[in-house]
């Protein structure tokens, strides 16, 4: 891991109708890092992703990708094409398409209207999809409609769709939501194996899961739209401010 910034967020604020969703947030992500972001409900975690991916524009502040690409000037698909992939909290897959076609649509490549009319699958495309299907353990269900998959499988498919785009940054919003303990653990292993090749930010509530994926990496705690503290998992967990934020709201999230 070198010390190159993959993502720079400095002094960013965003208000919605007077509600301060994000206040003076500063956040850096190193290349190849796996960062976990936690925080109570309403801490601004989803808004944080919205701002990075172009769904929302900051009122002020700087959001840069890599060295000097200003993300605040770009829209969702332009940011995606730069290499920023986002997984939503509720699995968002194309329910009427087969698992295979979900991946076809996500494969890296031209995204234009006319290119899509004349596009044919190459054998490299097929190989890449086969590889991904194995990785997300859906190779037996390639011809299933995505809508027929179990909740956990949909989450995995969506992760597969992100990987098909071969993004530089992966933004993952509560990947373990609705998964069994075993599925959660496997998801954690998958994310750990992806770190290094990709830079990853994971938003998560499940502390067992956070502990698993954070290992000795950095954990960022968001509270009321800004960074409350940042550090190793154990340090963060024993931080009195963090305990107060969580416990003070009657949420123990052990």
């Amino acid at each position: 891991m070198n010390n190159k910034y993959m993502l720079t967020v400095e002094d960013v604020s965003k208000t919605y109708d007077g509600f301060k969703a994000i206040t003076d947030l500063t956040f850096y992500l190193f290349e190849g890092e796996l960062r976990t972001v936690i925080g109570p409900n309403g801490a601004g975690k989803s808004t944080f992703f919205d701002l990075i991916t172009g769904r929302a524009k900051p009122d002020k502040g700087k959001i840069e990708f890599g060295f000097d690409t200003d993300l605040t000037e770009l829209n969702e698909y332009e940011i995606n094409r730069l290499g920023v992939g986002r997984k939503f909290q509720t699995p968002s897959v194309f329910t009427e398409h087969t698992v295979f076609n979900n991946l076809v649509l996500s494969l890296k490549g031209s995204r234009g209207v006319f290119a899509s009319i004349f596009k044919r699958h190459s054998s490299t495309d097929r190989d890449r999809i086969d590889e991904l299907l194995k990785l997300i353990r859906l190779d037996g269900k390639r011809d299933w409609k995505a809508g027929q998959l179990a909740h956990g499988e949909k989450q995995w498919l969506e992760i597969g769709m992100l990987l098909a785009q071969d993004p530089k940054i992966l933004l993952v919003d509560e990947p373990a939501a609705g998964m069994t303990d075993e599925e959660t653990h496997r998801t954690g292993e998958l994310l750990i194996s992806l770190a290094g090749k990709h830079s990853i930010i994971v938003i998560e509530h499940d502390m067992t899961f956070v502990k698993q994926i954070a290992r000795d990496g950095q954990v960022t705690v968001l509270h009321q739209g800004s960074v409350l503290c940042e550090g190793k998992f154990d340090a963060v967990q024993s931080n009195p401010k963090v305990r107060e934020v969580y416990l003070g709201r009657g949420k123990s999230n052990k």
């Binding site: 009427e96 009319i117 769709m161």
Partner: peptide, 25 residues
């Protein structure tokens, strides 16, 4: 039957995902 057709129906079933997959819907 083309990839265009796939994108078209994907927009119907989940436009956000299409947008966040890099397509200018």
């Amino acid at each position: 039957h083309t990839k265009f057709g796939l994108v078209q129906r994907a927009i119907r079933d989940g436009e956000n995902r299409v947008l966040f997959s890099g397509y200018a819907t």
